[in-house]
């Protein structure tokens, strides 16, 4: 599945999704975000059972501050609308997959 661009307008649907949700808080100008971006894309492609969304922190400041994002990239896993894991910094694919499985 393709990656969903998450905004404060569609966030409600994301939060209420039956699927496990992976959110990538990023900015275009951030090096480590550009590192992790393609990995997140790949996870979305390979795992149709996971809802993968990206939040541009420059455009979606309210969402970023609602999640207490002070560092990017920040990856958040949601299940049934609740934050299961939150992790700061770029991570290799295996570690992100482990976050999703925990």
């Amino acid at each position: 599945m393709s990656v969903l661009k998450v905004t404060k307008d569609n966030y409600f649907d994301v939060k209420n999704s039956d699927k496990t949700v992976l959110l990538d808080f990023y900015a275009d100008w951030c090096g480590p975000c550009r590192m992790v971006g393609p990995i997140v894309d790949e996870i979305a492609e390979e795992n149709p059972d996971i809802l993968v969304g990206k939040v541009n922190v420059d455009e979606q400041q309210e969402l970023a501050s609602a999640f207490g994002v002070m560092s990017i990239p920040t990856l958040v896993v949601l299940r049934n609308g609740e934050v299961v894991t939150k992790s700061m910094g770029a991570k290799p694919k295996a570690q992100i997959m482990a976050m999703l499985e925990s």
């Binding site: 900015a27 480590p32 002070m70 990017i72």
Partner: peptide
């Protein structure tokens, strides 16, 4: 405190 006040990349997190 990593990411909530302690950072290693000013260019990434400075804007916060």
């Amino acid at each position: 405190l990593l990411g909530s006040g302690i950072h290693y990349c000013a260019h990434c997190d400075g804007r916060f």
